[in-house]
Amino acid sequence: MSDPVLEMRDFRLVFDTYRGTVQALEGVDLTIYPGECVGIVGETGCGKSATARAMLGFVDKPGRVTGGSIKINGRDILKLRSREMRRLRGREIAFIFQEAKKALNPTVTVGTQLLEAVQAHQRVPRKEALERVHEALRQVGLADPDRLMDSYAFELSGGMAQRVMIAIAIVGNANVLVADEPTSALDVSIQAQVLAVLRQAREVTGSALFLITHDLGVAAENCDRIAVMYAGRVVENGTVEDVFSAPSHPYTARLLAALPSAERETLEAIPGTVPDLVDPPPGCRFANRCEKATQLCVEQRPPMSAIAGRRQQVACHHPLVSTKPARQETMSDG
């Protein structure tokens, strides 16, 4: 396998608040290879957006990085100066925001913003820049690029604005895209269109994509691998097939059991709440809500361990699927 385009290792992020220091991300490991789509899923407050933003160096006060590394194409971005980081953004890694209409600049035309995305990084004649912009707009399925370039963000529908956003992200040929809930503000029929556009654009550019979503359906249908986050940690990662058909972390299993579906009579809610991250428990952060939790879970943080015969890893002392070929677990797949 080729080298990863982005590798996050033991990443730690805290937020200084008046209540104390919130341990928002504690040792997050994520890797993405060229052309891959990796989903980051989890519920509100689990740290998926903070993770996504950190990949582009978007860590603002009161946020503070306390450890780990984020390597993009082999270079640790946490060691870069802000000027160097700016050169990386758009060229090697690009971000797609959730609410495109708010993320676009309301005071200048869409065209200006698209051209800026090209010319910020390369000295190209205006004519060539225009050609590239037109190409990008075609790729995201926007007909009549000339008229579109003269419009302002408020004139666009939600779906069109998100396509423009994607065009801005791909026009610099970045090899990693990070999309933070790119379709959660859109209707399902438009969501399907935008996700298709994102797929088609990636087929052309070959860029890898981190897709941050709370919608497990979107993750299942669009990603190759997914990472499940809970309370600032990745609890499980693996291929979509493995994680959905045989979740190994109790949280993942409970999350899937909480989804409404026709086959289910009642839904299983997850009892309890997420621990306070100002003073997080020393052990597994899911321990207080987990029916399999033991004293060990309360005291010791479970390490990420590989699952035999699969490209799946889990951070759990009592995983639902055996982590070592020797140990026989009687548990069936969650």
Partner: peptide
């Protein structure tokens, strides 16, 4: 039919298809 087909299913093996409806409301 299109609405049902557009709704993502949280199940393994269900890769996204071409969007069933083109255009906007």
């Amino acid at each position: 039919r299109a609405l049902i087909a557009s709704t993502p299913q949280p199940k393994p093996g269900g890769r996204a298809k071409t969007p069933p409806i083109q255009g906007e409301l």
